[in-house]
Write a protein that binds this DNA or RNA. Structure first.
Lengths: 230, 230
DNA sequence: TAACTTTGTGTTGTTTTAACACAAATTAGA
DNA sequence: TCTAATTTGTGTTAAAACAACACAAAGTTA
């Protein structure tokens, strides 16, 4: 069975959130059969390179970013005719980043890198749209049982930012008071003493931070983050 | 990047349940560096073979079984020195089967195939113990939010069978009355009119079946299976 | 026939969730 | 500078879900 003619790639579905909108990062291919087509950032792994490292490298190379959260999503390999020369199997990774932290810059293989709103993703090369859909579902469900929303926000945020993030990603209304009560009851979000006004008008609000250490500590005591409410 | 020297394999973590005990299927290698060592069933995929098919083929070949449930678990590939000739990346699959339905028979590459209790799994080759641990966690958590326990039981089962399955896999006590109430409230478990006594003594019980069609129908109506209770 | 085993069944107090409104701090504009 | 508009901040209550709990019925074994 060593006559296998298959190559392994990694691809990343990177989500970014800004002003109530959820975005996915795509890059425009410079070379190859799909030159000029938009695809997910990614590429072939090196012989002695761990998978996670390969993703991080590609994200750095193709878009100039370092993500806040990264986990394996799944492996896609049944698109046998993706490339003429050999079959390609791709390990897809799910990633979260705060777009404000970076200026996208396409470096090596990529001609351009761009944020697309999840609601308006163009037809991507390969089976990348399928990957995006799966990742999007993963984001939605994970938001309810793991505190990953914070990886999309600034380190210091208004409570309304967090609330809007949940509303817009989960696409439903949330009772502001119940939401606040629930989140605060976990004890993993800390109120700072900074008060700011960000929007055009309205009462200034306090800034909050996510206390990751507290969360990790609670995890050991069998704490279960869970936001499923009206 | 086409000088990649990496081969792709699939491996399966197959769980079986019988009389209150949870088992994992392992096979004994006949050839190669790890001859005689126990490993998970699996092997290299063929050039034009979808991943899922490869797993099913290997399970058939190496142990003579067809599983009830099969899903991708994750891809393991950082054990760069698993094989001297090339790096191997393995896509692990999570599977459930009712051991009663099959007689294990090692066919081609495997010298033997055997059920090991999860509590007493020997040291397996490669990074297979790590895969088993991850799969075991997946089983435990999935049991609470997806009705997969039925794939481990006979088609017709006593309520106490289901209850014992949950108790033993989740390793905790369950209130028999609350459990029954909750499960029945979903409406996905149907009472048959058959009454049997199976154990040595005691009052005979009714047999139940899992109504998969009803479940699929409920899924469309946003039903959420969920068993998390005392 | 008495002791043992397993199935089957309801009620109640406690906890969690859902629904709901108004005052305080600020800006914008008349 | 006053009024309208905007955003933050805060408690209560009714309804639903959950947890805890015991005893009778149907069979087997000794």
């Amino acid at each position: 069975m060593t006559d296998q003619n298959i190559k392994i790639a990694v691809d990343a579905i990177v989500f970014g959130y800004e002003k109530g909108m959820l975005y996915v990062l795509a890059v425009q291919q410079r070379f190859g059969k799909l030159a000029d087509r938009w695809v997910l950032p990614g590429g072939f792994i090196l012989n002695d390179e761990p998978l996670l490292m390969a993703v991080e490298r590609e994200l750095k190379e193709e878009a100039g970013i370092t993500v806040n959260y990264l986990e394996q999503l799944g492996t896609f390999g049944d698109d046998v005719n993706r490339d003429e020369r050999f079959r390609v199997i791709s390990v897809a990774y799910f990633a979260l980043v705060n777009p404000k932290n970076f200026v996208l810059k396409a470096d090596t293989d990529a001609k351009d890198a761009k944020w697309f709103p999840v609601t308006g993703i163009p037809q991507l090369g390969y089976d990348h749209n399928e990957m995006v859909n799966l990742a999007h579902q993963r984001l939605k469900s994970k938001l309810t049982y793991q505190p990953i929303g914070f990886d999309l926000l600034d380190q210091e945020f208004l409570f309304s930012d967090l609330e809007n993030l949940y509303c817009s990603i989960l696409e439903r209304d949330i009772d502001r008071r119940n939401f606040r009560k629930k989140i605060l009851s976990f004890g993993i979000v800390t109120e700072t003493d900074k008060v700011v006004k960000i929007g055009a008008s309205g009462r200034p609000g306090k800034l909050f931070t996510f206390d990751k250490e507290k969360y990790n500590q609670l995890l050991k005591e069998n704490f279960q983050f869970d936001i499923r409410f009206a």
